[in-house]
Design a protein around this nucleic acid. Structure first.
Lengths: 170, 170
DNA sequence: CCGGGCATGTAACTCGTTACATGATTAT
DNA sequence: ATAATCATGTAACGAGTTACATGCCCGG
């Protein structure tokens, strides 16, 4: 359901091909949503048939560039203002926290240290992107980057605290 | 993939029926993972066939209580220590942030205010659970509650900041 | 005695991932 | 030449949601 709107939203910022959109998910939207090209191409065909996007041009190697239509923009605004966000989340890292008591304090400590490494790297990446400015997927990206930075910092703080907790026996 | 391990992990904390597990997802694990009963029952049958859980007893109204086996516990520990968490996340609220520029500053402001209401309620709930202590789904729940509280506080702070940002024209 | 919650299951459908398949362009 | 990347698509499978279906127990 959200994928349709994610694609519409990206096309509202700039006309793109399926390939471009696939890269946007992998590079810029990874923290919020993900999608493979095999899912994207059929959905683009649906949106086209529904008149929410149109094919703007053709490029080399069969590249097809799509743009959002007025109907697509209206649908996007309706979605943002009139529907409640779906709160169903799946975050494997969050899930694992509930099960840390099953492994030894040493293993749990090691696990939390690896998590911290991952989030440290993410934080550095987001901070660099904030400083660099430049080409964002949508004009609202600075808002998203800021919450990304705050999220990574919060997790790193929590991971420090959690490592101490598990060290002294959960 | 993670659902199998989520069920194993919950059964490691206490023997439960499919109905109990469904409630645990809805009540305690909602922030981390979700699952409907129609998905849970077939997976329990798989885990049973694989010898990772066993049927411990039968209760009123056809209630079947399952418990984790030694093989299940070993699998759970292997999963926690030897596999990397799947980082693919889908969070519709995070996704929407990228598209806020499409609506008026007034509509964006109203949207962020509604989000804050939701997260304020979540924060209060988690804080109450922390104070109450009591019956947790797993012994590691205090770790998860703490990160939940910190997450909600971080979001509320960010939402304040974001409302100011959109008020002065993104 | 009857309504609400307990309790389990299946079916149909949609969404998402992995694998298969093909070919064009560009930089080295 | 040739490897990497650009570029699009389909097929098979697995995961997740919604709808259908049934019945039991307990409290008021």
């Amino acid at each position: 359901m959200s994928l349709r709107h994610a694609l519409l939203g990206l096309l509202a910022a700039r006309p793109s091909s399926g390939y471009d959109l696939t890269r946007s998910f992998r590079v810029s939207l990874a923290h919020a949503w993900s999608a493979h090209h095999s899912q994207i191409y059929p959905v683009l065909a649906e949106l086209l048939a529904a008149g929410l996007i149109e094919q703007e041009s053709t490029g080399p190697r069969g590249r097809k560039v799509y743009a959002i239509t007025d109907a697509g923009l209206a649908e996007m605004r309706r979605w943002l203002t009139e529907t409640e966000p779906d709160r169903a989340t799946r975050n494997e890292a969050s899930l694992r926290i509930f099960f840390l008591w099953l492994i030894s304090p040493e293993d749990a400590h090691a696990y939390l240290r690896r998590e911290a490494e991952y989030h440290r790297a993410k934080l550095e990446l987001y901070e660099e992107l904030q400083l660099a400015g430049g080409e964002y997927v949508t004009p609202s990206t600075p808002l998203a980057l800021e919450v990304g930075v705050r999220y990574q910092r919060m997790l790193l703080d929590w991971l420090d605290w959690a490592r101490q907790e598990v060290a002294r026996g959960d």
